[in-house]
């Protein structure tokens, strides 16, 4: 089987999410990558070095610069003439583009796979991760999005694939990019961090969140996350949100501070290797999944913890 993997990038470098998708794709067959963007030759060079990649297709065109689904999907559909499966990371770009590709090919998409069980058999979470479905596709071509934390990352070095330029369809003229507001952070990126310190509604307000959570995160070199309640209350921007409707993370250590552990939140972090919970309510559901729990008032316990580490 020949697979085509959508490379997640910012026109400068390959994002980590791509490496996990390469691993998933290599379990299906020969791996080809698609680098679509504007001024992204450097990305293609980087992509060619990823271990296990046979070929890199480079579509460098202003129409693909902001990964607009209306422009990128027809390009992928063209390339799917010579590929059997399309895989994208289950990031906001992947989730935006892949179903559009699937419908244009008249196939069903398999979303957010956790494992490859056979050529057409996969597992995926349903009901906010409360159940795992094993599904079998019947379509001739596969369109799949891959949960990044469920697969090991392919080595970023060691490959030497050929880069081939492809000319895709022109701008569809249906949509245009206006601008973006990217939250600035000097801490590790949430989805790839080894350690995450996450705060919930109990943090009271934005200032308190900063004063309690950030020093502990900095001490541990950790990324900062938040529950939906903390985001909705305006303590931190929404891209900090961990959960079914936010980011799915699986770090080595996840420290949940003042988070009760609603199913929506657990769906986003329960695959973490070690979960540590600090909460003053000893019956909070978070303690049912935590490896280490401390029942204490976070306003005393967290600063004390920070100073003693």
């Amino acid at each position: 089987m020949k697979t085509l993997v959508w490379v997640e990038h910012d026109n400068a470098s390959v994002k980590d999410a791509t490496l996990a998708v390469v691993t998933a794709a290599s379990q299906l067959g020969e791996v080809h990558l698609l680098v679509a963007g504007e001024g992204c030759a450097a990305v293609a060079d980087q992509a060619a070095k990823i271990a296990g990649v046979a070929k890199v297709h480079l579509a460098d065109n202003a129409a693909y610069g902001h990964a607009l689904a209306e422009n990128v999907a027809p390009l992928i559909v063209d390339l799917m003439g010579s590929h059997d499966a399309f895989l994208a990371p289950a990031t906001s770009n992947g989730k935006n583009i892949a179903p559009r590709v699937a419908a244009l090919l008249d196939v069903m998409q398999i979303s957010d796979i956790l494992s490859v069980e056979g050529e057409k058999t996969f597992t995926r979470p349903i009901y906010a991760g409360n159940a795992i479905a094993t599904v079998e596709a019947s379509d001739a071509k596969l369109v799949i999005t891959v949960r990044g934390t469920a697969f090991a990352k392919a080595a970023a070095e060691g490959g030497s694939a050929a880069v081939e330029a492809v000319a895709g369809p022109a701008d569809a003229g249906l949509s245009s990019y206006v601008g973006s507001e990217i939250a600035k952070s000097e801490r590790p990126e949430l989805t790839s961090a080894k350690i995450i310190v996450s705060g919930g509604r109990a943090l009271k307000d934005a200032d308190t969140f900063q004063q309690v959570i950030f020093p502990l995160a900095d001490k541990l070199g950790a990324a900062v996350g938040a529950s939906r309640a903390a985001v909705d209350a305006g303590y931190v921007p929404n891209d900090y949100q961990v959960g079914q409707t936010g980011k799915i993370v699986a770090p080595e250590v996840y420290i949940a501070v003042g988070i009760s552990g609603a199913i929506q939140h657990l769906a986003g972090m329960k695959d973490s290797k070690t979960i540590i919970a600090i909460n003053k309510d000893e019956d909070a559901p978070i303690f049912q999944v935590a490896d280490l729990g401390l029942v204490a008032d976070l306003f005393n316990a967290v600063p004390e913890l920070t100073s003693k580490l």
């Binding site: 196939v107 069903m108 398999i110 058999t121 979470p125 349903i126 991760g129 409360n130 159940a131 795992i132 479905a133 094993t134 599904v135 079998e136 596709a137 019947s138 379509d139 329960k270 979960i275 540590i276 600090i278 000893e282 303690f287 049912q288 999944v289 935590a290 490896d291 280490l292 729990g293 401390l294 029942v295 204490a296 316990a301 004390e304 913890l305 003693k308």
Partner: peptide, 25 residues
């Protein structure tokens, strides 16, 4: 187009321990 072969419970996490105080943590 997609057949569900099986639906199962997600892997259950092993119950953890509660520690007494910050020093233990």
């Amino acid at each position: 187009r997609v057949k569900t072969l099986k639906v199962s419970e997600p892997p259950v996490r092993v119950a953890g321990v509660k520690v007494a105080d910050v020093d233990a943590l």
